[in-house]
Amino acid sequence: MKELIQAALAEVNVCLPGVIVAYDGKTATVRPAMPKQLANGQTLVAPQIVQVPVCWPIADGGRAMVTVPLKPGDPVKLNFSQRSLENWLSGSDQAPDDPRQFDLSDCFATPVMRPGPVADTENVCIQYGPGTIKLAPSGDLTINVPTMTVNAQQTTYNSPVTVNGLLTYTMGMQGSGGEGSSISITGGAQFEGGALTHNGKNIGSDHKHGGVVAGGDESDVPV
């Protein structure tokens, strides 16, 4: 009886570490990371499994999603369904046509599962290459990236903003209202190109005061 049970269990697939062979953004070709050991002590090379659905955290009808790029050799966790998935993958929730159970062909892949990488034990951390995003228990957010590009119709900051590096703008700059709405600049200011105006009046380098005699001062202006 024990041998019969062991023989039956040997054909049951539940969960295995796997490796990505190829990935097209929807399904993957994978292989179990470990070979199968037979009852006589021999090992059987794990076969490749094709068209394996790759599962990601997805919600709100697919509008909310978290994914990572998968490359050949990346580790995944393989889960094997207790029922045939063919009908379900084609969009049907009806009973499966095939009675097979825990078969290698009815496999899900879940990235990315492998012990070993040293994790940040204090913060919620997202890392890819040299870029990191860290959220501390205090709620403070730190972003470290070589370059950051924000494409938004409008960006609003409801807090003071400090810029420690060079501030460059290409589409003009304007502001109005608020307490202490004047601009204070410590150090020199250099303006190049275009007219410098105040309340619609030119106060740039080509602005001249009428009635001032060359070489004179305000006392030279006739009353």
Rank of each mutant, 00 (worst) to 15 (best):
S138G: 07
V76Y: 01
P75H: 15
G61D: 08
G194I: 07
R31T: 05
S181C: 05
A28K: 06
N164C: 03
P222L: 03
T168F: 09
N151H: 11
Q48A: 13
L78S: 05
Q48D: 11
A214T: 13
I58H: 11
T29P: 03
V54G: 05
H207L: 03
P47R: 13
I126D: 01
P146G: 08
Q82L: 01
V54Y: 12
L141E: 10
Y23I: 08
Q6N: 14
A8K: 10
S138K: 04
V66R: 15
N158Y: 07
H207P: 00
P146S: 07
L89G: 04
N87Q: 07
S105F: 00
S181A: 09
S182F: 03
P99R: 10
F102T: 07
I58N: 10
V161L: 11
T197Y: 03
S159T: 12
G139E: 11
P111L: 08
V52L: 01
D106P: 00
M171Y: 11
I143F: 13
A195F: 02
P32A: 15
I185C: 10
T29K: 05
G187Q: 12
Q6T: 04
P111S: 09
Y157N: 00
H198N: 09
V21R: 15
Q82R: 07
S138Y: 04
D60V: 00
G116E: 04
V68W: 02
A7P: 06
R114H: 06
G200D: 09
P160D: 08
G139Y: 07
L167S: 02
I203Q: 01
Q153A: 13
K26M: 04
V19M: 15
V19S: 01
G18F: 04
M34D: 11
D103E: 02
T155A: 14
L85G: 01
N164Q: 07
T67M: 15
P137Y: 04
